[in-house]
Design a binder for these strands. Sequence first.
DNA 1: ACGAGCGCCTGTCGGC
DNA 2: TGCCGACAGGCGCTCG
Length: 273
Amino acid sequence: MPELPEVETIAVTLRNGRGGSPAILGHTILQARLLWERSLATPSPSEFYDRIAGQTILDIRRRGKFLTLRLSRYTLLVHLRMSGDLFVESTSAPIAPHHRLILDLSGGIRLAFNDARKFGRVWLVENPEGVLNSLGPEPLDDSFTFHDLHQMLRTHRRPLKLLLLDQSFLAGLGNIYADEALHRAGLHPLSFSSDLTLEQSEHLWRAIRQVLEEGILRNGASIDWVYRGGDFQNYFRVYQRTGKPCYNCGTAIERMVVGQRGTHFCPNCQPLK
DNA sequence: ACGAGCGCCTGTCGGC
DNA sequence: TGCCGACAGGCGCTCG
């Protein structure tokens, strides 16, 4: 489910608390309970239990789609993949279905990693760079300019949709925000990256930042049975709007498959040259 | 270097 | 009602 705006929303919520969900910053992890072993990427469960007990949560950030919890000595990295979520709940709450990892915290609360499809992963490491080092730049960083993006696009000859989904190219975009950004930029998902003019690259750069910032403003998107409180799904212009009229021109939105992912676009606003 | 195919998993939805 | 395939916000792997 989660792309950059959803992960950012979760990071901010864990850091500051939100609507009855308390902040976990400064709390100490008393013990861990792993309910699905494969949710833990590294280390082994016994080493994980030993190392995480007594660790205090000092900072919570996001890098791409990863959540990074800086602890006293280690860093806990969480990737939610398709269906993962993090909940802060009372220690006395019943264990919900699909909870995969529970961290009991000081103060009578716990952090629960819930993940119906079991694709999500958790890492406990001394150096987070080992996990994060292959990620591309952060699209919302002040230092990321449209000249940077143009240069990056020119060094590949790949369909735009595939590049935007490639986390080593740019970190944080997923299927929804890639489709939305391409629509706003007026670029066909199969356009070759190396063909973009500087002006088109600037449009894409602006569109990427706009959809991500708007997604964050709306606390992310909530879809299907996975709900996290955001409402950006009400502002999609192409994603899952197959057959419905484009808000710009009225043409029916089309769906195609690119890189085994459903891809939504307006054939009129996003022509393939 | 690239991209297709597949595996990992559970759940929902639409068609018959 | 039940079954069955398609599909789902992701990514790592193998193989051409």
